[in-house]
């Protein structure tokens, strides 16, 4: 593990500001979590996108989710 003294110096406020500009100027790299329709729409426009399947636990059923919390590690 690195010591604190070995960490690089923090970026200046100006350098931080420059980051979003480069994001907009370059091609977006997208990770879509959940509804795949968003990823499909982007892919149809030629945008590179990684889809992560996710849905609310127990399909959003709060009672089942509570039960799961009692039965799961």
């Amino acid at each position: 593990m690195s010591k604190t003294s070995e960490l690089p110096p923090a970026q200046s406020p100006l350098e931080v500001k420059a980051t979003p500009v480069s994001l907009i100027q370059g091609s977006p790299r997208v990770v879509n979590v959940g509804l795949s329709g968003f990823a499909e729409a982007l892919a149809a426009q030629g945008v590179a996108v990684i889809q992560v399947d996710w849905s609310p636990p127990a399909r959003g059923d709060a009672d089942l989710a509570t039960l799961l919390s009692k039965l799961s590690d």
């Binding site: 127990a58 399909r59 059923d61 089942l64 039960l67 009692k70 039965l71």
Partner: peptide, 19 residues
């Protein structure tokens, strides 16, 4: 069908005394 698994989970919870 997911409904089978959901009803089984409720029954298991009941069997284990957590519902």
């Amino acid at each position: 069908p997911l409904a089978c698994f959901e009803s089984a989970l409720w029954a298991l919870g009941k069997r284990l005394g957590v519902t």
